[in-house]
Amino acid sequence: MPADSSRDTGLQPERTTLSWTRTAAGLLLNAMLNLRSGYVHDAVPLLVLSGALVVAAAAVSGFGCVRRRQLARRGPAALADPLAMRVVTAATLLATGTGLASVLVGHWG
């Protein structure tokens, strides 16, 4: 079925940009909590993972800004960049690994 250009786009672009913001904020919060845990327990690997997570949060935030501009310029029909999706997936996996490392350091440290 062909796309109808007169179709009401609703709030989809706004929801998309808000989800990028929430994801970046969640990653940054996770990184800050794990940085504190690594500092308190003197766990260098956790500090390194947390530092990488801060960088990942910044990358997700940057991709979110790019996506916001794309949606503002081309509307909801603008396709998401596959690289951005891979970065978010990698950042989410890094956040999961860092969180698990933090729990293990707190439990055994």
Results as ranks from 00 to 15, higher is better:
47 L>R: 14
30 N>W: 00
75 G>K: 04
12 Q>V: 02
32 M>P: 00
71 L>H: 10
52 A>P: 02
103 V>E: 13
2 P>G: 07
68 R>V: 00
96 T>C: 15
16 T>W: 00
51 G>E: 03
50 S>G: 12
68 R>M: 03
84 A>G: 11
27 L>T: 10
107 H>P: 08
2 P>M: 02
26 G>W: 00
57 A>H: 02
98 T>P: 09
41 H>Q: 12
12 Q>G: 06
25 A>Q: 08
32 M>G: 06
13 P>E: 04
65 C>I: 08
38 G>Y: 04
103 V>T: 14
47 L>P: 06
23 T>P: 00
88 V>N: 04
80 A>T: 10
32 M>R: 14
104 L>E: 11
6 S>W: 01
108 W>Y: 15
44 V>C: 07
67 R>D: 04
33 L>A: 11
19 S>Q: 13
56 A>C: 06
9 T>M: 04
33 L>T: 14
105 V>H: 12
89 T>F: 00
55 V>W: 03
5 S>L: 05
94 L>S: 09
71 L>Q: 03
86 R>N: 12
20 W>S: 01
7 R>G: 03
3 A>Y: 08
89 T>L: 03
96 T>V: 13
64 G>M: 02
8 D>N: 04
13 P>N: 01
65 C>V: 15
52 A>I: 01
47 L>K: 13
56 A>N: 09
45 P>L: 12
101 A>V: 09
38 G>E: 06
45 P>A: 08
38 G>R: 03
2 P>F: 03
65 C>S: 15
80 A>M: 06
60 V>D: 00
87 V>M: 10
